[in-house]
Amino acid sequence: MAKSKPRVKVPKSASAGEVITIKTLISHEMESGQRKDKEGKPIPRQIINKFTCEFNGQPVFSCDLDPAVSANPYFEFNAKVNESGTFKFTWVDDDGSVYETENEITVK
């Protein structure tokens, strides 16, 4: 499988106490485990099973994923920001791989 590449959209700045919208995408096949290959053999499941978003080390939002989540999982959610800091996004693959990315936000 091609290396999964996360992309996120986070505003660069916000005012204190503002609720902002965050959007994330990661390229991933989300192989459901229900398909068969050309020889009729089942293709083993391999999905992103967990997504988390933290801000300055505190949990903001997370999701447990089942195989019914589409390829290239997309999440849109909100976060309330009271101070400047760093968002950390983490995707966990069935194969144990962990994909991460971080974004800074300045609170004025």
Binding site: P59, V69, S70, F75, E76, F77, K80
Partner: peptide
């Protein structure tokens, strides 16, 4: 509480 609101979107099969 840091979610700010209980709203989320994803895409499914």
């Amino acid at each position: 509480a840091m979610s700010g609101s209980a709203a989320a979107t994803t895409r499914i099969r």
